[in-house]
Amino acid sequence: MMGGYWTLVRRELSAYFYSWTGYVIIAAVLFLLGSSFASLLLVLNTRPTDLPITEVFYGTYYFWLILVMAAPVITMRSFALEKYSGTFETLMTAPVSDGQVVLAKFTGAMLFYTVTWLPLLGCWMVVRYFSRDPAVLDAGTLASTYLGILLLGALYVSMGCFASALTRSQIIAAMTSLALGITLLLVSFVALNFSAETGWKAQMYAQLGMLEQMQDFARGVVDTRPVVYYLSLTALFLYLTCKVVECRRWK
């Protein structure tokens, strides 16, 4: 029954706007995006560049800050709050399946995550408007950058859902998903060291290195390998979340 799924997605998404949390998250991300815009302008004004602005933006590293910080905060409430307040019991005794609940919570968080990234589009449009150079931002590069943002977001949001399902405390949920997210990012930094080498280690790290993969997306290069990598990791974490939600039925 898809009706239950969409009802839950609606509830998840609107929950961000019922309380202050949603607006606070949007404001914080907006602040970081604004900072990234400022440093982006600084770069553009100091030296001429032939890079697309998406790549210049990526070079400011604000992207990682937003990704690592925002995803845990967006997802921390999803399961932890329901378990804490007891509404998890009314939710799970409604005629919806565990899978539907997990998927709906993920979808809701993903939609909100997407909303927080929309102001960036405005920043880029401003640059394009004033630069009068169409090469600065073409539709393809824009699409691939947003594809990267969404793919990495999906992974981080699914990790956040997983962390939230593990506990009744929102703080612990946020900490856990932050730790997971930073670990994954650190692995990517390790991967940078192997980029010049060949051999199985370099091969392996090349697949795990999110830094270079995201740079490709920002450049407008879409490789299927990272796409598959992120989608399958997201699926894995959603599957694990399902199992955690189900595990109350094993006790």
Binding site: R11, A15, Y18, S85, G86, T87, E89, T90, T93, P95
Partner: peptide, 18 residues
């Protein structure tokens, strides 16, 4: 079972923000 069941758990949990 859930389709045929109306359940109010202990302490009546509700979405207080709705």
């Amino acid at each position: 079972v859930h389709r045929r069941l109306g359940y109010m758990p202990e302490n009546n949990p509700l979405y207080r923000d709705m």
